[in-house]
């Protein structure tokens, strides 16, 4: 089941712009390795789930996977062959707004080699360029 908020203030949101780099959520906090976004974009809830499954299948019971993003933006769309006007479309899917530098996923309890393979599988699912980062000592 794809992720989405339990309660929202408004059903629909404006599109917005992704400006600047991530100043929060840009370090590895829970695990030992992280998958960091190199560019910004929207990541669909279904894509997040696809990445989770791809990583979980590789990790099995050995390591622990953490998802560091949440799809809290509703994206609307108008049906095909609709005439202009008649207002904003209905919510189509939920997406996470990702700035460059955001850590998307984290892995703990695995070796670096395992993390590399796991994140390589996961990176194929992502619509943006990503890279592997390690926990910082200082």
């Amino acid at each position: 089941m794809a992720m989405m908020p339990k309660r929202v203030k408004h059903r629909k949101s404006q599109r917005g712009r992704i400006k600047g780099n991530a100043t929060r959520g840009n370090t590895v906090v829970f695990g030992d390795f992280g998958l960091q976004a190199v560019e910004g974009g929207w990541i669909k809830a279904q894509t997040i789930e696809a990445g989770r499954i791809a990583a979980q299948q590789y990790v099995r019971g050995e390591g622990r996977l953490y998802i560091r993003m949440f799809p809290d933006k509703s994206v609307t769309s108008t049906p095909l062959e609709t005439r202009m006007g008649k207002g904003k479309g209905e919510p189509d899917y939920w997406a996470a707004v990702v700035k460059p530098g955001t850590v998307l996923y984290e892995l703990g309890g695995v070796t670096e080699q395992q993390a590399k393979i796991c994140f390589a599988r996961l990176a194929h699912k992502m619509p943006i360029r990503v890279r592997l980062v390690r926990r910082r000592a200082v």
């Binding site: 989405m4 908020p5 339990k6 203030k9 279904q46 789930e49």
Partner: peptide
Amino acid sequence: ETGVVDTSAEPEVIG
């Protein structure tokens, strides 16, 4: 994973 994603479900709107 059931393979079926329920996209029709919507969250509760506050207020």
